[in-house]
C-alpha cells in the first residue's frame, strides 16, 4: 500500500504543476502583450509600464507558485 500512496503523490504533483502552470502562463503572456501595446503607444512611459508589468506578472505568478509549493509538499512529505 505504501508504494501506491507514493506513486499517487508523485502523479498528483505532476498533474498539480502541469495544470497550475497554465493559468499564470496565459496571464503573464497577456500582461506582457498589453505592456508592449502600451509602450508602442507611449514610448516615454516605458519605464513606468515595465515596472508595473513586472509587479503585475509577479502577482499573477503567485497561483503557479502555490501549485509549486503543493507539488513540493506532495513529493517530499509523503
Amino acid at each position: 500500500m505504501e508504494f501506491i500512496a507514493r506513486a499517487a503523490a508523485l502523479l498528483g504533483a505532476g498533474i498539480c504543476m502541469g495544470i497550475g502552470a497554465l493559468g499564470p502562463g496565459v496571464g503573464e503572456g497577456f500582461v506582457a502583450g498589453k505592456a508592449c501595446e502600451g509602450i508602442a503607444r507611449s514610448p516615454e512611459n516605458a519605464s513606468l509600464i515595465t515596472r508595473t508589468m513586472l509587479v503585475g506578472q509577479a502577482v499573477s505568478e503567485s497561483t503557479g507558485i502555490y501549485s509549486l509549493v503543493i507539488a513540493l509538499l506532495l513529493i517530499f512529505s509523503t
Binding site: 509577479a58 502577482v59 505568478e61 503567485s62 507558485i65 502555490y66 509549486l68 509549493v69 513540493l72
Partner: peptide
C-alpha cells in the same frame, strides 16, 4: 500567507 509564500516558492523552486 500569499506575500510570504510567493517569495519562498520562487526562491526554493529556483534553487531546486
Amino acid at each position: 500567507v500569499s506575500i510570504s509564500f510567493r517569495l519562498f516558492g520562487n526562491i526554493l523552486g529556483g534553487a531546486i
